[in-house]
Nucleic acid binder design. Structure first.
Length: 672
RNA sequence: GCCACUGUAGCUCAGCAGGUAGAGCAGCUGAUUCGUAAUCAGCAGGUCGGGGGUUCAAAUCCCUCCAGUGGCUCCA
C-alpha cells in the first residue's frame, strides 16, 4: 500500500481544499494533508498552505475510508435499532470496528445491517462537519453515556469540538472523513464479538462489530479471498489434516496430545535448539514438574501466579504445585554449590514443559494451551556480563528465525514496567518512617506490605533496579541495531523484557522469543557468587526463550508453511508407492533403504490403487512422493514427485544423497 | 472469568414447522494388479456434547452444566 505522495500543490486561503483541488484538476481525494495534519477536503485554510491530496488507495486514505465506514455502520445500526448506544469506532489494520451498547446480533442481523449500510452508501449522503461548544455537545449526546464520557475527557470546559453528520446520523468525532457516503460502497461486515467498555472487565459489555472497507469491489474481493485462504492455513485445521496432534476436550481440555507425526516435528525443533544451545554455551538440564509450594512462595510466583497454577494437597497435608515456569528448578541446580566469579556465566537450558491454568475463554489451539514446552534458558551472570549475553541471545534469535522460517516479519518490543501499577511487579520498597533502606521485594497489593524493620506501611517503591535492567536491554538492542517499540506495562512481574512478536495466519500477533533481566529472583533465593576479593556478590539472572513455546512456535510454523515444511522437519519426508502390488518388494526395498539412511519414509503396502494412495496422502503433506514400478525396478531408480508436482527419475542412491544433503543443510526450499 | 455463536459417525456435513437419524470420505470384507489427485461391490459404524424439563412423542422447544470458536481481560 503506497503512502500519500509529496505534492507541491498549494491551497489558497479562504477557499475550501475541495475548490483548490478541483482547480488543479485533482479528483477523488477523500482528505488532504496540510502541514502534516490530515484535514477534510471541505475545510478552509486561513492562509495559503502546501497540501497533499489523500486518496483511498493509500494507507492514510484507506484509514479515512474505514473510519467513515465505521460511522456508516453506526448509522445503519441506529436506524435498525434506535435504542443502540454507539461507543467508539476506529479503523484497524485491515478494516474497522464499532463498539456499540446494544443487544447481541446474530449472523442474519449482521447481514441486515450490512444491507442497510449499502443502501445508505447508495444514497451518497453528504458527510458534513459541525463545530459545537462543549455544552451543545453534551446536550446533543445526552442520551449516550459513552459519548458523554468522551466529550468530558476530550473537550475543555469552554472549548469546542466537532461532530460529523450524514443524513440523520451525528457522531462526535475529530475526523477527517470522506466527503460523502458514496465512497463507502465496497464494504463487508465480518464478525461480531464483544468487549468490555474501556477494556475493564467490571464495566458493561458492548457488542463489537468488525468489518472492512475498500476503495473498490475488486480489492474487497481480493481481501476476502485472501482471508479465506488464510483461514485454510489455520494450524488447528492443518494440524488435523497432517495428524500432528489432537486435543481431548473431555479428558484434558487445553492440553495437546502429540501424535507420532507431531512429535517428530517437535523433536526436530528440539534437536535444532539443542545444538544451537550447545554452540552458545547453554548446558541442558532437566528439572521436576512438581514442587512443594514453599519454592513458589520464595520465588515470588505465588504472589502473582497462584490463580494460574495447578495446585494440590496430598493426604499428609503437604501442598504442591505443578510448575508454571522453569526458573526455580534451574535456580535449585545453580544453588547446589558456591560459584566463583571465574565460573560465571552459568547457563542452563531445558525444553521445560510447564502447566498454567488458563481461564477457559483464553485457550485456543496451540497458541494458548494449558501445557506447553518452553525452550527455556536461565543465565546466572555477573553485572558486567549482561549486555554481551543479551546480544548473544539476540544472535541466537536471528539465526533461529532465518534458518527455520526464512525471512519472517518480526517485531521487537521492549516491555517495561508500568510505574502506575507497582502491584503487578516485584519491586524494592524503601521505608519512609524508620529510614531503613528496607531491603527489597515481594509483591501482592501495596497496602499489605509493611516494613520488615518497623512494620510501617509507609513504603516507597524504588525503581532503581528496574531502570538499570531496562537500560541494559535498551543498550543491547541499540548496539544490535534493532528497531523496537517500548510497551509500558508489558514487563514480566520480575523484570523488563525484550519480546519478539510474529503474526499468525489471521493476523493476530503472538509473542514468541523473550529475553528478561531479573534482579529479584536471585535475591529471593539468596543467590551469590564469590568475587575476586572472596566476598559474596549479587548474581543477575537472565530468563530467555527463543521459540518461546514449542507449541506456539509450531502453530506459527504450520501457518507459515501451510504445513509444507522444509524437508528436515517434515514428519513424512518420503512416501513410497508401488505402481501395483507386483512391485511391492522393490518399493519395500526402497523404503527400507531410506530408513537405513535415517530418512523418514512411509510405505503403504495395502492393495489400494496408486492413484488413491497419492490422493489420500496429500493432506499429510509428505515432502516427496516416490512412485516405483517396472521401469524403476529394472534400472534401480525412483520416480520422485516434489511439492510442485514436478517428476524426476533418479538413481536411488542419488536420490538418497540429495535428500540427505537437503536435510542436513536444513534447506528451506526443495532441491529435488 | 465475561459476551456472542457453535456442538449430529473417526473426518466434512445434511436432517431442526417436534413423530424417534442420513450422505460422502475414512474403516472392515471381497473382487480388481493398476504409471502419478478417488477401481468396483458389500458390510459395519451414532447415549444426536452431558444432565434436567415441557410433551403421547425431543437431535429438533426450554433450563442448566461441559467443551470448541470469535472477541475482551490475562499471557509464552
Amino acid at each position: 500500500m503506497p503512502k500519500a505522495e509529496e505534492n507541491k500543490l498549494v491551497a489558497k486561503a479562504n477557499r475550501t481544499f475541495e475548490e483548490s483541488l478541483k482547480e488543479a484538476g485533482i479528483k477523488g481525494a477523500v482528505a488532504v494533508i496540510a502541514d502534516g495534519v490530515e484535514m477534510d477536503i471541505r475545510d478552509t485554510p486561513t492562509a495559503d498552505v502546501k497540501i497533499q491530496p489523500v486518496f483511498t488507495e493509500t494507507t492514510e486514505g484507506l484509514k479515512v475510508l474505514r473510519h467513515s465506514a465505521a460511522h456508516l455502520l453506526a448509522e445503519a445500526v441506529l436506524e435498525l435499532y434506535p435504542d443502540a448506544r454507539p461507543n467508539a469506532g476506529p479503523p484497524t489494520e485491515d478494516g474497522f470496528y464499532y463498539d456499540i451498547d446494544m443487544k447481541p446480533v446474530n449472523q442474519e442481523e449482521l447481514e441486515q445491517i450490512e444491507g442497510r449500510m449499502k443502501a445508505l452508501a447508495a444514497k451518497n449522503l453528504r458527510i458534513e462537519k459541525h463545530r459545537l461548544s462543549k455544552k451543545d455537545l453534551l446536550e446533543r449526546f445526552s442520551h449516550n453515556p459513552y459519548k458523554i464520557d468522551k466529550i468530558m475527557d476530550n473537550v475543555e470546559d469552554n472549548g469546542y469540538s466537532t461532530v460529523y453528520s450524514q443524513g440523520e446520523f451525528v457522531d462526535f468525532c475529530k475526523g477527517p472523513h470522506v466527503p460523502s457516503t458514496g465512497f463507502l460502497r465496497s464494504i463487508k461486515l465480518l464478525t461480531v464479538a464483544s468487549t468490555h467498555y474501556k477494556a475493564d472487565e467490571n464495566r458493561p459489555m458492548l457488542v463489537r462489530i468488525y468489518g472492512t472497507a475498500f476503495p473498490d469491489d475488486k480489492s474487497l474481493k481480493e481481501f476476502l479471498h485472501n482471508r479465506e485462504e488464510a483461514m485454510k492455513r489455520d494450524h488447528r485445521k492443518i494440524g488435523q489434516e497432517m495428524d500432528l496432534l489432537v486435543f481431548n476436550s473431555e479428558w484434558a481440555p487445553g492440553f495437546p496430545f502429540y501424535t507420532p507425526n507431531g512429535f517428530t516435528l517437535k523433536q526436530e525443533l528440539t534437536n535444532f535448539m539443542r545444538s544451537l544451545n550447545t554452540l552458545h554455551g547453554w548446558q541442558e538440564v532437566a528439572t521436576p514438574h512438581i514442587f512443594k509450594d514453599l519454592i513458589w512462595k520464595q520465588s515470588g510466583h505465588y504472589a502473582k501466579y497462584k490463580p494460574n497454577m495447578f495446585l494440590f494437597t496430598l493426604p499428609d497435608g503437604d501442598n504442591y504445585g505443578v510448575k508454571p515456569m522453569n526458573c526455580p528448578g534451574h535456580v535449585a541446580i545453580f544453588a547446589r554449590e558456591p560459584k566463583s566469579y571465574k565460573e560465571l556465566p552459568v547457563k542452563y537450558s531445558e525444553p521445560g514443559t510447564v502447566y498454567r491454568y488458563e481461564k477457559s475463554g483464553e485457550m485456543g489451539g496451540l497458541t494458548r494451551p494449558r501445557m506447553f514446552t518452553v525452550d527455556d534458558g536461565h543465565a546466572f551472570l555477573r553485572l558486567d556480563q549482561i549486555i554481551s549475553e543479551i546480544k548473544d541471545i539476540i544472535s541466537m534469535i536471528k539465526e533461529t528465525y532465518s534458518t527455520i522460517l526464512g525471512e519472517p516479519s518480526l517485531t521487537f518490543d521492549l516491555s517495561v514496567i508500568d510505574k502506575e501499577a507497582p502491584e503487578n511487579y516485584l519491586i524494592t520498597y524503601r521505608c519512609r518512617d524508620c529510614g531503613t533502606e528496607a531491603e527489597a521485594r515481594k509483591t501482592s497489593m501495596a497496602e499489605e506490605l509493611s516494613c520488615p524493620n518497623c512494620s510501617s506501611r509507609n513504603l516507597e517503591p524504588d525503581f532503581t533496579t528496574w531502570d538499570q535492567a531496562t537500560d541494559q536491554l535498551r543498550q543491547a538492542l541499540d548496539e544490535e541495531e534493532i528497531s523496537y517499540t517500548e510497551n509500558p506495562g508489558e514487563a514480566a512481574f520480575y523484570g523488563p523484557k525484550i519480546d519478539v512478536h510474529v503474526r499468525d495466519a489471521l493476523g493476530r500477533s503472538w509473542q514468541l522469543s523473550t529475553i528478561q533481566v531479573d534482579f529479584f529472583m536471585p535475591t529471593n533465593f539468596g543467590l551469590y557468587y564469590i568475587n575476586s576479593e572472596s566476598k559474596h556478590d549479587r548474581v543477575i539472572m537472565l530468563h530467555r526463550a527463543i521459540f518461546g513455546s514449542y507449541e506456539r512456535f509450531m502453530a506459527i510454523l504450520i501457518e507459515n508453511y501451510a504445513g509444507k515444511f522444509p524437508t528436515w522437519m517434515s514428519p513424512i519426508q518420503v512416501y513410497v508407492v508401488p505402481v501395483s502390488e507386483k512391485f511391492q518388494d522393490y518399493a519395500k526395498n526402497v523404503h527400507e533403504e531410506l530408513l537405513r539412511n535415517e530418512i523418514r519414509s512411509t510405505f503403504d503396502n495395502s492393495q489400494e490403487t496408486m492413484n488413491k494412495k497419492i490422493k489420500t496422502i496429500r493432506p499429510r503433506r509428505p515432502s516427496y512422493i516416490v512412485v516405483v514400478g517396472e521401469k524403476e525396478e529394472e534400472s534401480g531408480t525412483v520416480s520422485v514427485r516434489n511439492r510442485s508436482n514436478k517428476q524426476n527419475v533418479l538413481k536411488l542412491d542419488e536420490f538418497i544423497a540429495s535428500l540427505k544433503s537437503e536435510i542436513k543443510g536444513r534447506v528451506i526450499d526443495q532441491t529435488i
